[in-house]
Computed example of a mutant assay.
Amino acid sequence: MAEEAIYVPRLAIGLVHYPVRDRQNKTVATNVTNFDIHDIARAAQVYGVERYYIIHPMQDQLMFVERVLDHWRTGQGAKYNPKRKTALGPVHTSESVEKAIADWNVPGALIISTSAKDEGLKKYTFAELRHEMHVEKRPVFMLFGTGNGMTEDLLKSCSGTLESIRGAPPQDYRHLSVRSAVSICLDRVMGPW
């Protein structure tokens, strides 16, 4: 008897550098970091993410990302560390969230934001989003903000917000690096448990 093919949900992620908030709640653009390129790409590869978009409106920041990608995909880095080349395969750059979603071009995808704060928006628990993805077979584009989180307008434009990752009681500390948050979220919605 032939084995049934395993269904892998369609998932893209975006690391949003603009529009995000600073500590004074002003809309700003944050800088791309080398760690975020590499570490999130590795997590994306582990959990079957189709595309990982680094979203920034400034060309110099996108050019920085492209130089890093070129080094590891086709330069000396590709020979030095072939696994890094594989991990960086799904990484793309985009000038805006809208352009990233259009580039992925998957009709009917849920656009899900993430936030450490309770923003008062439509919420998806991890279990609900996992059900949408694995049972209802809904594709998902998940956005992760940098700085002090995505702007309210961007959050409101999404299909919903994923529940926040809670810290251990009694403190409920919620100040993870975005790399850690991405890894936890991907494991909860894509992990084989």
Rank of each mutant, 00 (worst) to 15 (best):
D36C: 01
V189E: 08
A181Q: 02
A181T: 02
D187M: 04
G108D: 08
A41P: 06
G167D: 07
P90W: 06
V182K: 01
E163W: 00
V49E: 13
R42P: 14
R138D: 04
K26E: 13
P170R: 07
F144E: 02
V140E: 01
Y7E: 01
Q59P: 02
T30I: 09
G77W: 07
L155S: 10
I40S: 04
L69K: 06
I112S: 12
R166T: 13
E132I: 03
Y80F: 07
G89K: 12
V178P: 14
A168H: 02
L110S: 05
I112F: 01
R67A: 11
E152P: 00
Q24S: 15
G77A: 02
L129N: 12
K85M: 13
S177C: 08
V189H: 03
W104P: 05
K117C: 07
D103S: 08
V140M: 01
D70K: 12
N81A: 11
E50C: 01
R67K: 14
V91F: 11
R166N: 05
P19N: 04
S164F: 12
L69A: 05
Y7I: 00
T74N: 12
L69D: 05
N25A: 08
E119S: 09
G149D: 08
H17A: 01
R84S: 11
M58S: 10
E50Q: 14
D36Y: 11
G147H: 05
Y53H: 04
E95D: 04
C158K: 03
Y47F: 15
E50K: 14
D172A: 04
S96N: 10
R73T: 04
Q61G: 04
A100C: 05
A29T: 15
I55S: 04
D103P: 00
W72V: 04
V32F: 13
E128W: 03
I54A: 08
A109I: 00
L143Y: 13
Y47G: 03
Y47L: 07
A43Q: 07
F141H: 10
H175Q: 07
A116N: 11
W104H: 03
Q59N: 00
K156H: 07
F141L: 01
E50L: 09
V16H: 08
A127L: 12
H175N: 14
S96T: 12
G167L: 12
I37T: 12
E128R: 15
Y80V: 01
N105Q: 11
Y124H: 15
H38W: 06
T30Y: 13
A43H: 14
V16K: 11
A2D: 00
V49M: 10
G145W: 14
P19F: 08
I165V: 14
G48Q: 07
G191M: 05
H17R: 12
L15H: 07
A5I: 05
A29Y: 03
K99E: 09
T114V: 10
D103A: 13
G191I: 00
S115F: 06
L176N: 11
E3I: 00
V106Y: 06
S113A: 15
L155E: 08
V135F: 10
Q61D: 00
P9T: 06
G167S: 09
E66S: 09
Q76S: 09
L154A: 06
D70Y: 11
L154M: 07
E4P: 02
Y124E: 14
R67C: 09
P107C: 06
I54M: 02
E119Q: 13
W72I: 07
C185Q: 00
S180M: 14
P82E: 09
T74Y: 15
H134Q: 15
